[in-house]
Amino acid sequence: MLAPFILLFFVFYIVPVASSIVLSFTYYNMLQPPRWIGLANYRLLFLEDDIFLIALKNTLAFAVVTGPLSYFLSFFFAWIINSLRFSNLFALAFYAPSITSTVALTVVWTYIFSGDRYGLINKFLIDFGLIDRPILWLSNPDYMLYVVMFVSLWMSMGAGFLVFLAGLRNVPSDLYEAGAIDGIKNKFQQMWMITLPLMKPQLLFGAVMSIVASFAVFDIAVALTGMPSANYAAHTIVSHLYDYAFIRFELGYASAISVVLFLLTFTLGRISMRMFSSSDE
C-alpha cells in the first residue's frame, strides 16, 4: 500500500535533493561532465559573492516580516470568518488571491503602484497633499522590497488559511459549552485554552507553509521589479538561484545555493515541529 508513495517520494524528492548536494561540490555547466572542486562553490558563495549576501539579507528580512505576519493573519481571519454568517463566501474571497495567476495580479498591482501621478497610490497621496511628486514605488530601491512584501502578504491567504478554517470547524462545540461551565468567559479564553491546543496539527502545517512561502518568494518579485531589480534591492535567494541555474547555466554553483536554501527551510521547519508537537509524541 505504501510502495507507490514511497517510490514517487524517492524519485521526485530524495533523488533531486541528493543530486543537488553532490553537484554543489562540482563545477557543472551542462556542456561538460561535472568536475569535483570540493568546497569552492560554498567558499565563493559566502566570501566573494556580494550579490548572494544581498539576496540572503533580503530573503531573511522578507521571511522575518511576511512569514509571521501571514501566519498570524491567516489564523486571525480564519477565526473571525468562522464565526460569521456566510463564512464560505468570505473564505472564498480571502482564498481567491492565492489561486489567481501571478501575471494577472502583476497587472493590477503594477497599476496600483505605478510610478506616475496616475497610479492609484500616488494619486491618492497627491490628492490629499501628502506628497508633491510621484514616488517610483517599483523602481526606487528604497521602496521596492516593501512593495513586494505587501503584495506577497496580500497573496498569502492560501492553503494555511483553509487549513486553519477547517481546524476551527472541527473543534467540537460541546467543549466550548464545557469550558463555559468551568469559567471561560470570553472568546479569547476559548481560543487560548481550547482551540489552540486542539489545532496543533493545523498550526504546524500553517507554520511550515509560511516558512516555505517566505523563503521561496520569486515570481511576484521578478514580475514587479524586474530581473535583476535596481541595485538588487528586491533580489532573493531564489532569484539568485534562477540566475545561475537557467541564465548562466552554472548548475554546480546553483546547487550550492539550493542546498543553503534547503538547510534554512529545513532548520526552521524542525523548530516549528518542536514548537507545535505534543509532549506525548
Rank of each mutant, 00 (worst) to 15 (best):
T110E: 14
L45E: 04
I81D: 10
Y42G: 08
Y118V: 08
L56Y: 02
S114F: 10
F90Y: 15
V107M: 11
N88I: 15
I81Y: 06
P134R: 04
G129S: 03
L60W: 00
G67K: 01
W36D: 11
D132W: 09
L44M: 14
G67N: 05
T106C: 08
P97E: 03
G129D: 02
A91Q: 12
F52C: 02
F90M: 09
I131T: 00
F124A: 09
S70L: 07
F113W: 07
F76V: 13
L60V: 00
G38M: 02
N88P: 14
Y95D: 03
L120Q: 05
L125F: 01
N82K: 11
N29I: 06
L45W: 06
T110W: 14
N58R: 07
Y111Q: 15
R43A: 14
V107P: 13
W79T: 13
L92I: 15
L47A: 15
F77G: 08
F90Q: 10
L39Q: 08
N58Y: 01
G67Q: 04
V64K: 10
N41K: 02
I131G: 02
F86W: 14
I80K: 13
L120G: 04
G115K: 05
Y42C: 09
L23C: 12
I81N: 02
I21E: 06
I121T: 03
S83F: 11
F124P: 03
G115Q: 00
P97S: 04
I54Y: 10
T106L: 04
A55P: 01
Y118G: 04
A55H: 00
L31W: 14
F128Q: 11
S24I: 04
R117K: 12
F113V: 12
W36V: 10
T66S: 04
Y71P: 03
P68K: 00
Y27S: 14
W137Q: 07
R117C: 12
Y95Q: 04
L92F: 15
D116I: 04
L39A: 10
I126R: 05
N29V: 07
T102W: 11
I112E: 04
V103K: 06
I121V: 09
G129R: 08
A63L: 05
V108P: 01
L69T: 07
F128H: 13
A78G: 04
F76K: 11
I99E: 05
S114L: 06
F25M: 09
T106D: 12
N82V: 07
F75N: 07
G38E: 06
Y71V: 04
L120T: 05
K57C: 09
S87V: 11
Y95H: 08
L92E: 15
Y111V: 13
S101P: 01
A93S: 08
L120K: 05
G38H: 00
I81F: 08
D127P: 03
G67R: 07
N58M: 05
Y95K: 01
Q32C: 15
N122S: 03
D116F: 05
W137N: 09
L136K: 15
A55N: 03
